[in-house]
Nucleic acid binder design. Structure first.
Length: 271
DNA sequence: ACTTCGACCTGTTGGC
DNA sequence: TGCCAACAGGTCGAAG
């Protein structure tokens, strides 16, 4: 479900409710995620205060003085701030109770997500250490895309979705960015010029920024941490629009599978 | 070093 | 109404 804009929207949503708040208790209702939740979490987090909520790629980092809770939402997970009277639902795996009487609740129906508890620098955690650059920083450049692509024959769409190069670009925003850049998603990564990578780099930054402003994309189940939908779905130009008219040229949007992911593009506007 | 593909899960949707 | 297959916003790791 969530790509960078949805995770960032979640980060902004939960921060005000939990930063500088003392944890009373932790309730784990289902330990089964991509990796089992550590028992140490429920023993060690109570009594600690959340100092900050950061994001690295699609991971959220909740830091205390000595530890960090690393959270990934997977395909279908979400975090909500709820009051104690909010009914527990199926797949509510974890709940953190704060001194301010608010709960942070983690729900993950497909269990593709992760809740990791560590006392090391989270950026050095084995799950995060190999992540690529943040797309909304000056480290993400056309030169980076170009240089690393010279030996890569994969479709450019798969290339930009590879998190060891650049993080946060998932299926929706890969499609949208390639449309904005006018690049055919099927083209080999090593066949794209530096000039066109400049356009792609700019497009990725722009699409992600606009999606964050809109509060993310709600296709079906994504909700902001207050339960309300994000509004970027209305701005999607190609994703999910197979057979509909291209907003630029009017031709029909096509779809194909690339690396087992549905891919949407306009064959007239994207070459 | 790179590519491909199956695996991990549950819920929803659409066809018959 | 039920059944079943296909598909969904993401990674990971094995095998070639």
């Amino acid at each position: 479900m969530p790509e960078l804009p949805e995770v960032e929207t979640t980060r902004k949503g939960i921060s005000p409710a939990i930063v500088d708040q003392l944890v009373d208790s932790v309730v784990i209702r289902d330990y089964r995620l991509r990796w089992p939740i550590s028992k140490a979490l429920e023993q060690q987090l109570p009594g600690q205060t959340i100092n900050s909520v950061d994001r690295r790629g699609k991971y959220l980092l909740l830091r205390t003085d000595t530890h960090c809770l690393i959270i990934h939402l997977g395909m279908s997970g979400h975090l909500r701030i709820v009051t104690p009277d909010t009914l527990v639902k199926k797949h509510d795996h974890v709940e953190i109770h704060f001194n301010n009487k608010l709960f942070l609740r983690y729900n993950a129906p497909r269990r593709f997500g992760a809740v990791l508890w560590t006392n090391q620098d989270p950026l050095k955690h084995e799950r995060l250490i190999k992540l690529g650059v943040e797309p909304l920083t000056e480290k993400f450049t056309a030169e980076l895309l170009y240089k690393n692509s010279r030996s890569r024959t994969v479709p450019v769409k798969s290339y930009i979705m590879n998190g060891s190069l650049v993080v946060g670009v998932g299926n929706i925003y890969a499609c949208e960015s390639l449309f904005l850049a006018g690049i055919d998603p099927r083209k080999a990564a090593n066949s794209i010029s530096l000039k066109r990578y400049q356009r792609l780099c700019d497009s990725i930054k722009l699409v992600l920024k606009q999606a964050i402003i809109a509060g993310g994309t709600t296709l079906k189940d994504f909700r902001k941490s207050d339960g309300k939908p994000g509004y970027f779905a209305q701005k999607l130009k190609v994703y999910g629009r197979t057979t509909e008219a291209c907003v630029t040229c009017g031709r029909k949007i096509k779809s194909i599978m690339i690396s087992q992911r549905n891919t949407f593009w306009c064959s007239a506007c994207q070459r």
